[in-house]
């Protein structure tokens, strides 16, 4: 099997879908000519191979980039637009929250908005809180959207291909740390359905529920727990909206314990939703209170040493799990 980073896997997905369907085009700031000129970045080489009509470098104008996606998708195009960093989505959010998400509903299903908004998230680069801010819970609070946050290169490729083919607007959040970590990706054509979680490690004592970069942290934590005699199951949600409640509840009913792990800040974070679902539908299965392991309720610190304290790691996770065993 080929070994690709998430950036390369996203690149392959974009390439394959653009070859398959002329309606697919890419637009955003520096998606064609990039300052990075780094082959590991997701849109590397696409301008050369598909030309400037299908790989459109745009003015620095987030609302217009998202608006371009909304307007062009009404005509049946399948735009994949990029908002450079997750916090910049605030400038584009009227287009995503009030228009992409609602216009299908308002038009009585006559118009469809098959668009994808990709954005980079995640702390760990010393880039400060205005570059690094995980806002997936905001997006997941908007009916009409789908919100996807892959944790592995293989999932990123299969999910992005599904997102591009989906008739609903999809927010696709890629953690930039994952751009540089290789993983196995199947060579043959495949897609992964949106709205399906994946059990990344089967276990019997506790369910660790996570997504995006934190899936790797969860797996490392599970390894340490195994050495301590705790058999952890790791559930990678992959899609936050619509949520795969079935896989979540099945796992918690089996293990009787739940720890949710995400990088985003705690208050109002998506872990709250997971815990609420378990409390509503599987409370009787719980042998202990659930726990949340998350970033603290502060903006991401600029200083790299402080940033390391901000991002939850496997030790924080292990401690939380051992606390409820």
């Amino acid at each position: 099997m080929q070994q690709l980073t998430m950036g390369q896997a996203v690149n392959q997905a974009l390439r394959e879908e653009m070859l398959r369907d002329f309606n697919v085009f890419i637009a955003g700031e520096g998606v064609g000519v990039s300052i990075h000129d780094n082959p590991l970045m997701p849109t590397a080489g696409l301008l050369k191979d598909f030309g400037p009509e299908r790989v459109k470098d745009t003015p620095v104008s987030e609302a217009a980039i998202a608006g371009l996606a909304v307007g062009s998708s009404v005509m049946g195009l399948r735009p994949v637009v990029e908002i450079m960093f997750n916090p910049f989505v605030t400038i584009a959010s009227d287009m995503i929250v009030n228009h992409a998400a609602k216009l299908r509903y308002l038009s009585g299903g006559k118009s469809t908005f098959p668009l994808v908004v990709r954005m980079k998230s995640g702390a760990g680069f010393g880039a400060g809180c205005q570059h690094s801010h995980n806002l997936e819970a905001w997006m997941a609070h908007c009916p009409g959207l789908k919100v996807v946050m892959p944790g592995t290169p293989a999932d990123a490729k299969g999910l992005l291909k599904s997102a591009i083919r989906d008739d609903n607007p999809v927010v696709f959040i890629e953690d930039m740390m994952l751009y540089f970590i290789p993983g196995p990706v199947p060579e043959e054509e495949y897609t992964i359905p949106i709205g399906k979680a994946d059990v990344k490690r089967v276990g019997s004592d506790v369910s660790i529920v996570s997504w995006s970069k934190m899936v790797g942290v969860a797996l490392k934590g599970a390894q340490i727990l195994a050495e301590n005699g705790v058999d952890a199951e790791v559930v990678d949600l992959r899609t936050l909206l619509p949520l795969d409640r079935e896989t979540l509840l099945t796992s918690v009913r089996k293990t009787g314990r739940l720890v949710v792990l995400h990088e985003a800040t705690r208050t109002g974070g998506f872990a709250g939703e997971i815990c609420a679902i378990v409390a509503e539908d599987a409370l009787n299965s719980l042998k202990a209170p659930f726990r949340r392991v998350t970033g603290p309720d502060i903006p991401v610190p600029f200083s790299p040493p402080l940033e390391r304290f901000y991002i939850p790691d496997e030790n924080n996770l292990v401690e939380a799990v051992l606390g409820i065993m």
Binding site: A66, G67, L68, G71, V74, G76, L77, H99
Partner: peptide, 10 residues
């Protein structure tokens, strides 16, 4: 206004 630009683009 942004939707109209997207439509025109398409």
């Amino acid at each position: 206004t942004l939707h109209a630009v997207g439509l025109g683009y398409a």
